[in-house]
Design a binder for these strands. Structure first.
Lengths: 335, 335
DNA sequence: TACACTCCCGAAATCGATTTCGTAGCATAT
DNA sequence: ATATGCTACGAAATCGATTTCGGGAGTGTA
């Protein structure tokens, strides 16, 4: 049996009320008793039962981190985010509970909410369906969406500045003299994809280059999808001299396709990715990308969520974080 | 206010006892009332309060997953493990709570134990100090160490078969005709390192090749450490024709050093890694490695832990999992 | 009729903390 | 002397479930 508050109270011949108040910094406890209580608490190795606290205070000091199975494909993204988030949470005595949840069924989420397993959620998702956002707002559960902005005006989110990142990438490619730039996209245009595509299109238009629909190819969210997309681009009669893969993993796939064709990177085809996954630095040549402050995003998501937990009636917080162009060999200037 | 068991009992004019028993499958409830209770529970959207259950049942159905900061360096290892583990845990209604904890101070662990935040721990650590193992055994907390075997006979662990994996790697290199094989090691020899090194040494001895101490170089657990180690090897007068990096990240570092020297992989220097991190497939050429069934390790660690939670007096479980040699271009046969 | 035995159900204790409210004891003001 | 205020503490309610124990109603047996 573990040490409870009662053990302390009996030993000191005090009431449990007083002991609890002494431990929790209430003012109606004399300095002398407080020291006594603190002392014996440490001496006995007392730590309050989480369950009892949770039940009484109706909060858990736990935060749910919700992933979907794409976790495995973005593991280093995840790892950095989680490190930042965990540190921020632990600093204020909170813990992080992991959930893997596919977006299509809100049932298990509802269960978590009803059971009060956590005080709030951070979604590290490619896509949080509107249905779920509505449900969460309905249930008045504090939540923050990480890595992706959503349309609902009442939702809080924190996301990288995809548009300006993609603009920098395009600027970089245009300055290098590329005029035919391929773009890989996703079948369903989420905001992330849309923003990066908008930047692609706008940059071309501003440079006076006409959009060639042939240069825009679809990739699915599955292995080798970027590989096939790149092949399609390389098969074009008027082959692009650069490929803007909208995600580092797609860039790595494309890299492979290019190498297999016997083409040189960046001389024959330059390639750039997005998101700053660490793997993009390990290819030969390493791939130019746009990096995000991942640990900071993780940290910030926790801080945002804690604010909402403290007061869920605050206006939603929506943050766009600056990104940074990281030029690597895969897109070196043409001479 | 959320729906409690009392709401159901009032609506049906039953006692809370009966409602609880109906929901939890007790036999002393008639089939009729059970259906009634189940029905209105669903109708009202009832889910039992986690805190109340935990308090009364003295268990949380939560498992603590403890990492240290190296998490960032082994993110895809982590990701696969966690996916397997989470799936296994959710299948039996358990959840996973993440903790990042440096091995040196057991204080925060003690707090978690005393507060009964979780029912047990899985340590995904490079190194769990004996001090902590002893403490956990003392406190009778169920725990499993993942990815690394430990000396203490009472500890449960699950780890890859490092010795036979490294043996296969060495066999592969020896068959390719290599006789001078460099090995990168760690300053403090843990079991993992030791097993891989033993296999290295034994394979050489069996092949009648003398151990050359110059070919064994140290790496620290920090970025670029493998890079420097490889350079040291390449600087030798009688340069090795192959490098056995004891970890994929070290292999990637070494890869870079070799490329910078203008040497060709595998013609001038072959290279092999260990652990099957997915990044090792993305280099050019991709790096030969030994893969582990990571998702299974994650899953298995949960099952082992659950057994210990059910009965912590069981004899410890210690599992070695088979690994698989994955030959890639970085060590292709010499002609 | 008496007794034993099942089948269902409810009262109440319990898990371990937090928090409200009341008050004894003492000092100070009127 | 009475009123007022302040400090420091304790009694008891409370959070929401689980679980033990006891017993009424109904059936079967001697």
């Amino acid at each position: 049996m573990s040490v409870t508050i009662e053990d302390i109270s009996k030993k000191l011949k005090l009431s449990t009320s007083t002991v609890s108040k002494a431990l929790n910094g209430y003012k109606d406890v004399s300095e002398k008793t407080r020291e006594l209580v603190m002392g014996t608490a440490k001496e006995l190795g007392y730590h309050p039962s989480a369950a009892a606290r949770n039940l009484r205070r109706q909060r858990t000091d736990k935060i749910g981190f919700v992933f979907n199975n794409s976790l495995m494909y973005i593991s280093d993204y995840f790892a950095e985010v989680i490190v930042g988030a965990t540190a921020a949470a632990e600093a204020v005595g909170n813990n992080i509970v992991l959930y893997i949840n596919e977006g299509d069924s809100p049932d298990s989420l509802i269960k978590l909410i009803r059971a009060k397993e956590v005080d709030g959620f951070v979604f590290v998702w490619n896509h949080v369906p509107d249905q779920i956002v509505d449900m969460l707002l309905d249930e008045k559960v504090p939540f923050v969406i990480l890595g992706r902005r959503v349309s609902h005006p009442e939702a809080s989110w924190i996301a990288p500045d995809n548009y300006s990142g993609a603009t920098e990438l395009m600027q970089h490619l245009l300055e290098a003299g590329h005029t035919r730039i391929g773009f890989t996209t996703r079948p369903s245009m989420g905001h992330t994809n849309q923003d990066r595509f908008d930047a692609y299109r706008d940059a071309l238009v501003q440079a006076g280059i006409e959009i060639d629909e042939d240069l825009i190819v679809e990739t699915k969210i599955e292995p080798f999808s970027g590989y096939h997309a790149a092949k399609k681009l390389l098969d074009l009669e008027d082959r692009p001299t650069a490929i803007f893969a909208f995600h580092d993993y797609v860039a790595i796939d494309a890299h492979q396709a290019i190498v297999e064709r016997g083409l040189k990177i960046p001389d024959d085809v330059a390639i750039v990715g997005f998101d700053g996954l660490s793997v993009s630095a390990f290819t030969t040549p390493p791939i130019t990308t746009v990096t995000q402050p991942l640990a900071e995003i993780g940290r910030e998501s926790i801080l945002m969520l804690l604010k909402r937990i403290a007061n869920n009636n605050l206006p939603p917080i929506q943050k766009t974080l600056p990104v940074e162009l990281e030029v690597r060999l895969s897109s070196q200037l043409k001479k």
